[in-house]
């Protein structure tokens, strides 16, 4: 028995939705950030599945680019979190409702 592309998309969709839940429900800024990474991974899986279906290597390039952008985003995002922690002594996102700098 073989796996169709749909199965990969289903799995990717479930992981994406779990990531969304994490972004919406978690209070720890680092965990919110990790949930975003989970969402990115889920989309990567979907793109790779489509690339496999169509036999086009372009999808792999996009996944490669997404991974690279994610690396850059993590560097900047964690730098932001460290800066916020210095200012507020906390990374609970509930305490960040005032944009006073």
């Amino acid at each position: 028995m073989v796996v169709q592309t749909e199965a990969f998309i289903m799995l990717s969709m479930v992981l994406f939705v779990l990531g969304t839940l994490g972004v919406l429900l978690k209070r720890n800024a680092i965990l919110v950030f990790m949930s975003i990474e989970l969402m990115l991974n889920a989309t990567n899986l979907a793109i790779a599945a489509f690339a496999h279906q169509w036999g086009q290597v372009d999808g792999h390039l996009f996944v490669f680019f997404i991974i690279t952008v994610a690396a850059a985003e993590v560097a900047v995002g964690l730098a932001l979190i460290v800066a916020i922690f210095r200012a507020k002594r906390s990374i609970n996102i509930d305490e960040l409702h005032q944009m006073e700098g």
Partner: peptide, 28 residues
């Protein structure tokens, strides 16, 4: 995926968690 994501990026995450001592975040 293994080297960049599971390796480099997650090491960065763990490092920042331990640096800030943010294992647990209590409600404000």
């Amino acid at each position: 995926q293994l080297t960049v994501y599971a390796g480099a990026i997650m090491v960065l995450f763990l490092f920042v968690i331990m640096l800030l001592g943010a294992e647990k975040v209590l409600p404000a």
